[in-house]
Simulated assay, not measured.
Amino acid sequence: MRSIKNWPADERPREKLLASGAEKLTDAELLALIIRTGDSASQQSAVDLARSLLSRFGSLRQLSAASIGELCQQSGIGPAKAAEIQALFQIARRFSDTRLRPGQVYRSSQDAFQHFHERLCDYRKELFFALLLDSKNRLIREVQISEGSLSASIVHPREVFAPVLRESAAAVLFVHNHPSGDPTPSREDIDITNRLKQVGDLMGVRVLDHIIVGNGDYVSLADRGML
């Protein structure tokens, strides 16, 4: 393994960043600065190891969704380096966090998408949430209703509307993700939405929307006139 220390200065990631800025580095070079050292067993430098990780997972986004165990399957990545990689992506998520805050007015489906996208776009199970709003469409709180496949047995009106009643919410909207990345609503999505809308009407609670989050995109049933 040829040590990065022996590379020409303009090829070393750290020196390249200091001289030209972080935007000039490749994904592998940036990742190499995080993992710092290579793998002596496979004779890979830190840059080689970073390239192997990106090749294994396909992209930075897919790498960001990898578990500690999955990262450690790569030769040269132990628990310490895996933790550093996960910490990097968590910082990035928090920096780009555009969640609605309690008391903030909900204005459009884009607000809900931005609120949930970073958390849900790469999640491998379906999560179903409700955003509880007051009479002026200000956020009261977010509630997770279920985790798993979306079905009538999991998303039951009783569990969905219990927190609505506790918080005296005047309106509610629902959000869930599609782990496939495709936000196209299924027949079951539409049926459950209609069922929840009927219950909301009976209770005097406005059901504003059901938003399905995919990878970089979303579908609002209200925007499509399906609610």
Rank of each mutant, 00 (worst) to 15 (best):
S3Q: 02
I4T: 15
D10C: 07
E11W: 12
K16F: 04
L17E: 15
L17Q: 14
L17A: 15
A19P: 06
A22S: 06
K24D: 09
T26M: 11
I35W: 07
T37I: 01
D39R: 06
S40N: 08
S42D: 06
S42Y: 00
Q43L: 10
Q43N: 09
A46C: 14
D48C: 10
L49E: 12
L53K: 11
L54P: 02
L54D: 13
S55C: 05
S55V: 03
F57K: 05
G58T: 05
L63M: 09
A66I: 04
S67Q: 14
G69D: 15
E70M: 09
E70D: 14
Q74T: 12
G76S: 13
G78Y: 01
K81Q: 07
A82Y: 11
Q86Y: 00
L88W: 10
L88E: 00
L88P: 01
Q90L: 10
I91E: 04
F95W: 03
R99V: 01
R99K: 14
R99C: 01
P102A: 09
R107T: 03
S109C: 13
F113V: 08
Q114S: 07
F116E: 00
E118M: 06
L120F: 11
Y123D: 14
F128S: 11
F128R: 04
L132S: 02
D134Y: 06
D134P: 09
K136C: 03
N137R: 15
L139N: 02
L139V: 09
Q144K: 13
I145D: 11
S146Y: 01
E147S: 15
G148I: 13
L150P: 04
L150I: 14
L150H: 06
L150Y: 07
S151F: 07
V155C: 11
V155E: 06
P157M: 03
E159P: 04
A162E: 04
P163Q: 04
A170G: 15
A171C: 06
V172I: 14
V175E: 11
V175H: 10
H176I: 14
N177F: 03
N177M: 07
P179W: 08
P179E: 04
S180M: 02
G181H: 11
D182G: 08
D182I: 06
D182S: 05
D182V: 15
P183G: 08
S186Q: 10
D189W: 01
D189Q: 01
I192M: 08
N194K: 15
R195P: 00
R195F: 01
D201H: 04
G204R: 10
R206F: 00
R206G: 00
L208E: 07
L208I: 13
D209H: 12
D209I: 09
I211D: 02
G216N: 02
D217R: 15
Y218A: 12
Y218M: 12
V219G: 01
V219N: 02
S220P: 00
D223I: 01
D223M: 13
R224I: 02
M226R: 09
M226L: 13
